[in-house]
Design a protein around this nucleic acid. Structure first.
Length: 544
RNA sequence: GGUCCCGUAGCUCAGUUGGAUAGAGCGGCAGCCUUCUAAGCUGUAGGCCAUUGGUUCGAAUCCAAUCGGGAUCACCA
């Protein structure tokens, strides 16, 4: 094994096969900047795509941007009301953040407007409401009177009342009007929508580039949200779906353990799942994927299960190849992230912080001699960003995880830095042995094939056995859709190498044969580390 | 209430196609830099694998129940 692959940077990867897999991930809304949860999604999606490529698949990375709907209208309305013509240029604020700021302003204003209505409702006075809502509010209020205060049920009703209050504010009325205008292609509304979305995309681009994430194809919901209706008609004809008295169209999934699911509103407009069905077809026409992986939070398990079932019932192409990679929420040590409490960790801020921290810690280490300013900046980027990616990818995607800021910037233990450090040490050895090849670290002349006469030492053997497993790991991580398999593996390699390194010398090996053997082990280890980390989207430095 | 996921060391996590003394990292304690980078290495303490019952020669792993945590069940997306 060693003599065959020691100098093969692509060791572990498989030859291409004629099978296409689409990986959909990231899929942001355009009313808010990216946050910590999105980072887990992005890193996961990107890494899974790489892992599948390493298994020989043809991979198409896609992103479905949710660029339309009431949420973006909220930002637009707040901008009209409070913006005074502010732009990213005039304020110096990154586009996605600027738009996000107006979204927050909208929510604040909404709360202010809803409060007096809520107070009225709580007094049992629902005269501010009309029709069905008035009746509903009265019913809710009566129920509330019968319940003990502070109970869970009471809280629920309270929330429903609050929803009613919010819904009936002038602000919500305005924003709904705006959405209607958008749907009627009102030129001014569309223009503003395009402008503000444009700002968001500029902002997203910067973030994506920075975190090293990209896509082969981007779909916009504004272009796809009307798709899928004809499949509903089709399903209706085939008798898979049914129509209720009010005209809405449903599918009964109770035989499959789910409930009835709405597919088309009574007014004939589509819902989330309708456009998803359309998108399946569109994706198929564009790329003919054999499998389609959706990287979406596990709170959508139910939705994705329903989507797949319906697609199978409709006999959409490759419906059986739909796979939902549902990942758990990222929580903070104090609990969930809540925008209301301002505990949302912004993606851009977090990346900045990680890099600053990398700089600080490097200075503490006192290891910055002999680097140019550019090299240092690049190194901090590699360490900071790598640390963040590794932290989010090292745990099983399916599980909820706790993001501890202090732990995430740690450079010791089960971290990217630990592995990067091992790589830098190997590079240092190889640099010394092959000074002419500092850049490539690959010797220009093949090493003489020396069959070691001495038996392998324990750590040499361990390391070789571990290296041999790389192919298996790549297979396993793809099969389980789990980059943490690779992260764990890379760590074990680095760990074993560090032990080996401190116990046995390479350049001053006991015999020339041993030296050749160890050089090969080193070379191969460095290739495997670089390759494994590459699958996670993490770079490794020659020196650090 | 129905469905689904989770519960392993003080903390964060591996291990779950059943197999030998349950593994890492952090944190604690004790050591190691005149030899290839100490962002490292070595040693040590710390666990009734939520609980109870079952299947089995054998269970952290499979089954059931219970307790605790979470998600979801919208004419929202």
């Amino acid at each position: 094994m060693l003599s065959e692959y020691y100098d093969d940077p692509s060791f572990g990867r498989k030859p291409p096969i004629a099978e296409t897999i689409m990986v959909e991930y990231s899929s942001p809304n355009t009313n808010k900047p990216l946050h910590l949860g999105h980072l887990r999604n992005n890193f996961l999606g990107w890494s899974i795509a790489e892992i599948l490529k390493a298994n020989g698949y043809n991979v198409v990375k896609t992103c479905v941007v949710n660029d339309r709907g009431i949420h973006i209208c909220k930002s637009m309305l707040a901008w009209i009301k409070f913006g005074n013509g502010a732009t990213p240029q005039s304020t110096g604020i990154k586009g996605d953040h600027l738009v996000g700021d107006y979204y927050v302003m909208f929510e604040n204003e909404l709360r202010t407007q809803a409060e007096p209505i809520m107070q009225q409702l709580l007094k049992g006075d629902s005269n501010l409401l009309t029709g069905e809502e008035k009746i509903k509010a009265q019913q809710l209020w009566k129920k509330l009177q019968e319940l003990p205060a502070g109970g869970e049920k009471g809280q629920e009703i309270n929330n429903e009342l609050r929803e009613l209050a919010r819904y009936n504010t002038p602000l919500m009325r305005e924003v709904r009007e705006m959405l209607l205008k958008w749907e009627e292609h009102d030129p001014a509304t569309i223009e503003l929508w395009k402008k503000m979305n444009g700002w968001v995309y500029e902002g997203f681009d910067i973030t994506y580039r920075r975190i090293g994430v990209d896509f082969d194809k981007i779909y916009y919901e504004s272009e796809t949200y009307l798709l899928g209706k004809k499949y509903v008609e089709e399903g209706l004809k085939k008798g898979i779906f049914f129509r209720k008295e009010d005209g809405s169209i449903w599918v009964d999934l109770s035989k499959d353990g789910l409930d009835e699911k709405l597919l088309l509103r009574k007014d004939g407009t589509s819902v989330y799942i309708t456009q998803d069905l359309g998108l399946i077809r569109l994706k198929y026409e564009d790329f003919h994927p054999d499998q389609s992986i959706y990287v979406i939070g596990d709170e959508q398990n139910y939705h994705m299960k329903a989507l797949k079932l319906i697609a199978m019932k409709l006999d959409l192409p490759k419906a059986a190849g739909i796979y939902h990679l549902g990942y758990g929420m990222v929580e903070l040590p104090g609990g969930k992230m809540k925008s209301r409490e301002g505990t949302v960790v912004d993606a851009d801020d977090l990346v900045d912080e990680m890099i600053i921290e990398a700089r600080k810690k490097s200075a503490e280490q006192g290891k910055i001699e002999g680097f140019t300013e550019d090299e240092l900046n690049q190194l901090y980027e590699v360490i900071g960003l790598g640390g963040l990616k590794f932290f989010l990818l090292k745990v099983d995607p399916k599980k909820r995880m706790v993001f501890n800021p202090e732990e995430s910037i740690d450079l010791h233990g089960f971290t990217a830095t630990f592995i990067q450090y091992a790589y830098a040490r190997i590079s240092s050895i190889l640099r010394k042995e092959y000074p002419a090849n500092e850049k490539s670290i690959i010797p220009s002349e093949p090493m003489p094939s020396v069959i070691p006469s001495e038996p392998l030492l324990l750590l040499e053997k361990e390391l070789i056995l571990l290296l041999e497993q790389f192919t298996t790991m790549i297979e396993q991580s793809a099969r389980e859709h789990d980059p943490s398999v690779i992260a764990n593996y890379a760590f074990r390699i680095a760990q074993t190498f560090n032990s080996f390194y401190s116990k046995h010398s390479v350049s001053n090996a006991e015999t020339p044969g041993k030296k050749q053997l160890r050089l090969r082990i080193c070379l191969m280890t460095s290739h495997v580390i670089k390759s494994a980390m590459g699958l996670l989207g993490i770079q490794v430095p020659q020196r650090m």
